[in-house]
Design a protein around this nucleic acid. Structure first.
Length: 426
RNA sequence: GGAGAGGUGGCCGAGUGGUCGAAGGCGCACGCUUGGAAAGCGUGUAGGCGGUUCUCCCGUCUCGUGGGUUCGAAUCCCAUCCUCUCCUCCA
């Protein structure tokens, strides 16, 4: 959410920033509501001052036994109160009108974010590793998984519908192994605090991180008005909602392994086969809460940690900086990590690392007191480290062998208790 | 689901109709003290919004939220959300 005062003082800058998001004449719209609201407030406060003075007069007059004076003021107050009531109603309306408007507006992107319409205009930052060559035609992950007899889309569809999967045996264990491997890395090497979070949250939490009010159709909603989280970024970031931290508390670094739920409304026809795009998937998430001066460095640190996961798994990947058209609502800048998938013969997103600046912090009242005693908004960042489902996909496709087995990456072998995944029934 | 208790400043916690935005403590900041530190002592320390002669000041709102009673409410009444305790149930 944006600071209306900042918009007032930086109208041109703000409009320029919104134009990059394909939004025009936003400042004027916001400032008109703002103007109405402030006029209303000034008017209301005048009346309140009058009322308060008259009330004081009543007390004094009574104390001095001046009943005439007291009665006169009582009548006066009664009149003013009627007008005040109307003013209050109007002020509340205008305030929520302004709020609702501001809540719909996306974050301002950093200048280094390139202009562009969609993912085709993202900029490649660097590549690590080389795409693996096979002396046979590499299969896609769903064929590998089904041939192993450990990945079942049909039975999942029977009980849950499309975009669900059942994993069994070693593939089920692989999910758990990956979660442990990633959590160990983030907690032991990056000093992140491991957290188990609620998967079901209320609407306030989602307004805080920016999923609401604009993207409700992407969420699953329960009959009692709660929502399944679409990422544990929601729960982790909300750990600091409505608090004022001390500067010495910063930074806060969290990590969580959790399931995520997305309705994938609007994704009809995309990645319909396989595990790439599911209604339910798991992810190890990183969230950092930082001092405004440190969020830039923190984003790089987070990216480094996510990359390290892929390096340890010995998977080829590239890092791209998202262009304006692909950068999410709440982000000032996003780096995606795309892993090489031999079966698809292309790089696919496996992690997304975003700096949100104070955008989310404003929405949820997450503040800290700096060393001068001033209260300021925190900066929040989030990144996947990594999406587990897509990591399974990457391992299957990159570590497949000619006979249909899948080798287990070295770092995972202690977690898997073996070196190869095979079809035991063959 | 049944019964009860409670929601106050960064935190803890007093306050049951009128100079209460709110005692006290903790924390924090600054100063004194010290060779230095701790302890001790002193001073200061809520947030939002608005105005402004804009590092000052003024006004206004805020004691979970919304409504009501009253000249006047943190304090009384109603509704609502949340938390806790006991019972019931349950992984």
């Amino acid at each position: 959410m944006h600071d209306i005062k900042w918009i007032r003082d930086n109208k041109t800058l703000f409009d320029k920033a919104m134009a990059r998001r394909k939004l025009n004449t936003i400042a004027d719209q916001a400032l008109e509501i703002d103007k109405n609201r402030r006029d209303c407030v000034v008017e209301l406060q005048k009346l309140q001052t009058q009322r308060n003075e008259a009330s004081k007069t009543i007390g004094n007059a009574r104390a001095n036994g001046n009943e005439t004076m007291a009665n006169f003021s009582i009548n006066l107050v009664a009149d003013i109160k009627k007008t005040i009531k109307e003013g209050e109603v109007r002020e509340r309306e205008l305030t929520s009108q302004l709020n609702n408007f501001l809540l719909q507006l996306p974050n301002i992107m950093f200048d280094d974010v390139p202009d562009g319409a969609d993912e085709d205009e993202n900029i490649e930052m660097h590549k690590v590793g080389t795409p693996k060559k096979f002396d046979f035609e590499p299969k896609q992950h769903f064929d590998i998984g089904e041939d192993l007899g450990q990945m079942d889309f049909e039975i999942a569809a029977k009980m849950s519908g499309s975009r669900f999967v059942v994993l069994k045996s070693d593939l089920a264990r692989l999910e758990r192994a990956l979660a442990n491997f990633m959590l160990d890395l983030h907690t032991q090497e990056y000093d992140r605090e491991e957290v188990v979070v609620p998967l079901l949250v209320n609407d306030h939490a989602l307004v805080g991180t920016g999923q609401l009010p604009k993207f409700e159709e992407d969420m699953f909603k329960t009959t009692d008005g709660k929502y399944l989280i679409s990422t544990s970024e929601v729960s982790l970031t909300n750990l600091v909602r409505e608090t004022t931290l001390a500067e010495s508390d910063l930074p806060k670094r969290y990590t969580s392994y959790s399931y995520c739920f997305r309705s994938e409304a609007g994704s009809a026809g995309r990645d319909t086969r396989g595990m790439i795009r599911q209604h339910q998937f798991s992810k190890v998430e990183m969230v950092s809460i930082t001092h405004p001066d440190h969020s830039e460095a923190e984003q790089l640190l987070m990216l480094e940690a996510a990359e390290l996961v892929l390096k340890r798994l010995d998977l080829a990947y590239r890092v791209v900086k998202l262009c304006s058209g692909d950068t999410g609502f709440g982000a000032k800048r996003t780096f995606d990590i795309e892993v090489w998938l031999p079966g698809q013969n292309q790089y696919r997103e496996i992690s997304s690392v975003s700096n949100c600046g104070d955008f989310q912090a404003r929405r949820m009242g997450a503040k800290f007191k700096d060393t001068e005693g001033k209260t300021r908004f925190l900066h929040t960042l989030n990144g996947s480290g990594l999406a587990i489902g897509r990591t399974i996909v990457a391992i299957l496709e990159n570590y497949q062998t000619k006979n249909g087995d899948v080798e287990i990456p070295k770092v995972l072998q202690p977690y898997m208790g073996g070196k190869t995944i095979t079809n035991a029934k063959k």
